[in-house]
């Protein structure tokens, strides 16, 4: 089990005059599966971007700690695995090359055995040397999970995790979410009832609109 925690204090996010959410506080500790639910445009993606340190809240703070030490924004990316529909991998490289570059740029070891296992788990082992531009949308979604898991992150953030996936792909993802939720923090932002049903604790963004 990880010793990681994410604490949000009184988050407010606005885009111009439009309020996305207000006074949103939560704490995710050690492990578990946490859900973020809300209608289209309710701010799910905005909230997970704030959690991942990709954008700043208008007010309030978000603090990541590991083993009791606060993680600065310069190193935060090494603790996070992220999947989202707007995450794009490099079309001009093969899947394997993409992951190899990502490991080098992250400054972590390219663990070939783990990557091969992840390719096998997501049923892409025969297509790992194909260019990403030749992948279907479902295959790209599977590859994003390999990208998210390759460096063994302790915080996994999944936005619409099952979009574009077939039933077999969904089953693999659900199994992985349950497995990772037992040892790490997994955050799932989705509209899908089946996705959200995996989460014992859910933040409903409609409750933070005033």
């Amino acid at each position: 089990m990880s010793n990681y925690s994410v604490r949000a204090d009184a988050l407010l996010k606005t885009f111009g005059r439009r309020l996305i959410f207000n006074n949103l506080s939560f704490e995710f500790k050690k492990n578990g599966i946490f859900g973020i639910a809300g209608a289209n445009g309710s701010g799910k993606s905005t909230l997970i971007k704030i959690i991942a340190g990709l954008i700043s809240p208008t007010r309030g703070s978000i603090i990541h700690t590991n083993e009791g030490k606060v993680i600065d924004s310069e190193h935060l990316h090494n603790y996070i695995g992220f999947v989202s529909p707007y995450l794009i991998l490099y079309d001009e490289f093969t899947a394997w090359e993409n992951l190899s570059y990502f490991a080098k740029i992250r400054g972590v070891k390219f663990d070939e055995e783990r990557i091969k296992f992840l390719f096998y788990r997501f049923s892409l082992q025969t297509r790992k040397d194909d260019y990403v531009k030749a992948y279907s949308s479902g295959m790209k979604q599977r590859l994003k999970f390999i990208f998210a898991l390759m460096h063994k992150p302790v915080l996994l953030i999944f936005d619409e995790p099952t979009s574009n996936l077939d039933d077999e792909g969904k089953a693999v993802v659900y199994e992985m979410i349950k497995e990772e939720g037992g040892k790490n923090i997994v955050i799932v932002a989705s509209n899908e009832k089946t996705d959200i049903s995996l989460c014992p604790e859910i933040i409903v963004l409609e409750n933070y609109k005033e």
Binding site: L54, E74, H77, S84, L87, I88, L89, F102
Partner: peptide, 20 residues
């Protein structure tokens, strides 16, 4: 234009990106 900015933000610190 390719939409890969987010990917870079997820794998590298700003100083790494600028230097590269």
């Amino acid at each position: 234009e390719r939409g890969t900015t987010l990917t870079l933000q997820l794998i590298a610190s700003p100083s790494t990106v600028f230097t590269g």
